[in-house]
């Protein structure tokens, strides 16, 4: 990529969105499968937490993840500003969404913002109290490595549970569009695969979001 204009081109920017998005999708898949452990065994879950919390590879990955997330968010805003400029100041008096157009696809920014709020909440509750606490050697109510305890602590509070469910629903919508859209943007698509990828996106988003929700709901039920 010797051409310096790559990132100033519309497709270049979108490419960056896709690559970071796909990276985040992989992270979500990993995170969701890790969470599932908590449903079956607190000890096993804590072992995973301990392993990741002290592992420098995991830390490096966290840093990359953070950068990826920031790039994804930053470009989301850059593109949105550009797009609204391209749309112009005159709005249609009436505009109907064609049936084949996903609702999510037209609301990715707002969905992204909800997801972002969720991430902030989530990081402040878990990452800050676990990985960050361990690194900074802070002390809290529960040990930094006792992830299971944090889970049952937060998810016994119903407002937290509701917030998480809202977050996950937004995430589901975001993923159903984001997954196939990312592949489309990097050019991995054609007429035959278009419907297939859309279907895979829905299945993937449903599995990931259900996995996350399962942990929250199971923890909440256990607290009753």
């Amino acid at each position: 990529m010797s051409n310096p204009n790559f990132l100033s081109s519309s497709i270049g920017k979108k490419f960056l969105m896709s690559i970071t998005g796909l990276f985040l999708i992989m992270f979500l898949a990993f995170h969701a499968s890790m969470n599932m452990v908590a449903i079956f065994s607190s000890e096993a879950y804590n072992a995973v937490c301990e392993f990741l919390g002290t592992n420098w590879y995991a830390l490096a990955a966290t840093a990359v993840l953070a950068i990826g997330t920031l790039v994804h968010i930053a470009y989301a805003f850059i593109l949105s500003v550009q797009n609204s400029k391209a749309r112009g100041n005159n709005k249609y008096d009436s505009q109907v969404r064609p049936a084949s157009v996903e609702w999510a696809s037209k609301n990715m920014l707002i969905l992204g913002i909800i997801v972002l709020c969720g991430i902030v909440l989530h990081l402040s509750q878990f990452w800050y109290k676990m990985m960050f606490a361990e690194l900074a050697e802070m002390s809290n109510e529960f040990a930094a490595t006792d992830g299971a305890a944090w889970i049952s602590y937060y998810f016994s509070q119903w407002p937290v549970v509701v917030a998480y469910i809202v977050w996950l629903v937004a995430l589901w919508f975001h993923l159903t569009h984001g997954f196939w859209s990312a592949l489309q943007t990097i050019g991995w698509n054609n007429k035959i695969w278009l419907p297939r990828l859309k279907c895979i996106s829905d299945i993937f988003a449903t599995i990931v979001c259900c996995a996350f929700a399962a942990v929250v709901i199971v923890a909440f039920c256990q607290s009753l």
Binding site: S10, K13, K14, S181, L194
Partner: peptide
């Protein structure tokens, strides 16, 4: 000054000739 494609597919849905967004890919 045209905008960026966010793959909503609205263009394909309203295209009088049914040009597919697989062309965009």
């Amino acid at each position: 000054g045209f905008g960026n494609c966010t793959n909503t597919g609205a263009c394909e849905a309203e295209c009088p000739k049914g040009v597919s967004i697989s062309n965009i890919a």
